[in-house]
């Protein structure tokens, strides 16, 4: 075994990749996103069967992956936090969220290209109603993937007596500008997940999400 064989390992540093995230969204959330109201919307048995098959198809088409990284906060004030790699996140509300945190976790998840391509194909050329269901499944699965990662990271850091902040932020929320999407894209090297970012900071494929949470002590009321 030559040490050269391990050169590629340099890339494995602070970034932790999940090749397959087994998150399945709550069915109710998918339906709610489609405008379903439990007490009002009426679906007959045939329709329910078809809807279930459509949702299952959507779940099959998702190739959910993710990545996260833990970075120390080295400087902070009321309006921004600076991370150990020099990146600065400017936002009053984010700084407030992170007030008890000594580190941040940056995370990203994507459901992959296949389902996004299929959604477009169905809506534009074929069965738009099916395309819509796939769209809801994809959006909810991306969110569920983030929930899963938060749960995973919480379990990982509980052994240190730490936990993630109850809330998580995404660029574009509150006063955290969307420009931060690019900062985090670079830190997490999201190209490795097959993602791109446009000039206007949109992630492609679309159903991809970035989030920030703080790492604080288990006793904190965060």
């Amino acid at each position: 075994m030559m040490s050269g064989d391990f050169m590629a390992l340099e890339q494995y540093g602070k970034l932790k990749y999940f090749e397959h995230i087994p998150a399945v969204p709550d069915n109710g959330m998918i339906l709610t996103r489609l405008g379903y109201r439990k007490t009002k919307t009426v679906l007959d048995e045939d329709y329910k069967k078809k809807l279930k098959a459509n949702i299952d198809m959507g779940l099959m088409l998702c190739n959910t992956k993710g990545v996260f990284s833990r970075l120390s906060i080295i400087k902070r004030d009321d309006e921004s936090v600076e991370l150990e790699n020099g990146a600065v996140l400017k936002s009053k509300s984010l700084a407030k969220l992170l007030q008890n945190s000594m580190e941040v976790v940056l995370m990203a998840a994507t459901v992959g290209k296949d389902i996004v391509d299929r959604i477009h194909d169905e809506v534009e050329n074929n069965d738009a109603a099916f395309g819509l269901v796939l769209d809801a499944v994809a959006s909810e699965t991306a969110d569920a993937a983030l929930d899963w990662m938060v749960d995973f990271i919480n379990k990982l850091i509980r052994r240190e007596g730490k936990k993630l902040t109850g809330m998580r932020y995404s660029p574009g929320y509150g006063d955290l500008p969307l420009t931060n999407q690019k900062i985090i894209f670079d830190i997490l090297d999201l190209g490795r997940l097959g993602l791109r970012i446009t000039e206007r900071f949109m992630l492609i494929p679309e159903k991809s999400v970035i989030a920030i949470a703080g790492v604080e002590g288990v006793e904190s009321n965060g």
Binding site: L31, L34, G35, V42, Y47, A129
Partner: peptide, 17 residues
């Protein structure tokens, strides 16, 4: 039906199609 939420979006679209 959609306005009353007795139909949800996929049903509206399916009818529209």
């Amino acid at each position: 039906l959609y306005d009353k939420k007795e139909y949800f979006l996929p049903q509206l679209i399916q009818s529209a199609e």
